[in-house]
Every structure is written in C-alpha cells, then in structure tokens.
Amino acid sequence: MANFNLNINGKNTQIDVDPSTPVLWVLRDHLNLVGTKYGCGIAQCGTCTIHLGDVAVRSCQLPVSVVGNQAITTIEGLSENGDHPVQQAWLEHDVPQCGYCQAGQIMNAAAFLKHNQDPTDEQIDAAMNGNICRCGTYTRIKKAIKTAANSENA
C-alpha cells in the first residue's frame, strides 16, 4: 500500500492503495465516483475513459502510481451542471439508450474536440473507434459530436 495525492475534478484527494490499482477502481471503490464505468478492463471498450490533463485515457489500464500531479477529470467533473457543449449536444440528439457507455463516449469526444474543433467524419471515426456502444447509438454520437464542435466554434 502507498499514499497518493490526486487532483480529481479540481479537488485534492489523498488515498492509500496498492500502487498497481487502476484509477478506475480508485474512482469507483475508494472515492465513490461511479460515473466512470468498467466494461472490459483491457483498454478495448472505452467505458472507463477519463481525462488526464486534457488527454483522454482508459482508466482501467492506468495504475494510480503513474498519475503523479497530472489533473484527473471524470464525467462528474466535466462541467458543473451538465452544461459542457458535448453533454448539451448529447441531450439535444437524445443519444443514450441504456446509457452505460455514454460517460466514456462523452469524455472521449470532449478531449478529442479540444484538439480538433472541426472534425471530419473519418476523424471522428478514428478518434471514437475505441468506444463501444452495444446499443448501437453510433450515428447519433457522430451527429452530437458535430453539433458540439459547431457550438464550441460559435
């Protein structure tokens, strides 16, 4: 076990866990931040996506020991009241079905749009291919990403 100082959603948090513990389980089991989901544990589905700095990472494959002082943002911290342009676009297109994958999709899309404000379809596909939606909401997700891109440009 070891002590870690983490900056999560703008707050400093101390935890004492095994250094190999993936951030996913630190969030879910130790900090009660359960918006970040488990889907595969091997970096294949994207449901566990969070931001490390402003990069989207799969928290199931991110040992807590490598985080250091990089800021972590989870779906709970993406915006105060669900008013991030990506969240708003998701609501506008009524994207979710079961909803389980959507936090990961949103986090990945939000990071992607920070780096590419005017994405093409192919760029969206390439960026989002790691996020599975078993319910098949892909076409809506693409529309929502474009809407969010436009509103961020505005």
Binding site: V34, G35, T36, K37, G82, L91, G99, A103
Partner: peptide
C-alpha cells in the same frame, strides 16, 4: 418526440446502474 427523462442523469454520470449501487 420527447427527450429521455433520464438524459441529464446519464450525461452527468449519476449512479443509476446496478453496478453503481452501494
């Protein structure tokens, strides 16, 4: 067409699912 009544909870990551129960 009416929007999903749980839409906001889903996009903000509220604990809704079985696995989120504690």
């Amino acid at each position: 067409s009416k929007k999903n009544v749980d839409g906001m909870k889903i996009v903000t990551g509220k604990p809704l699912f079985g696995w989120d129960f504690h």
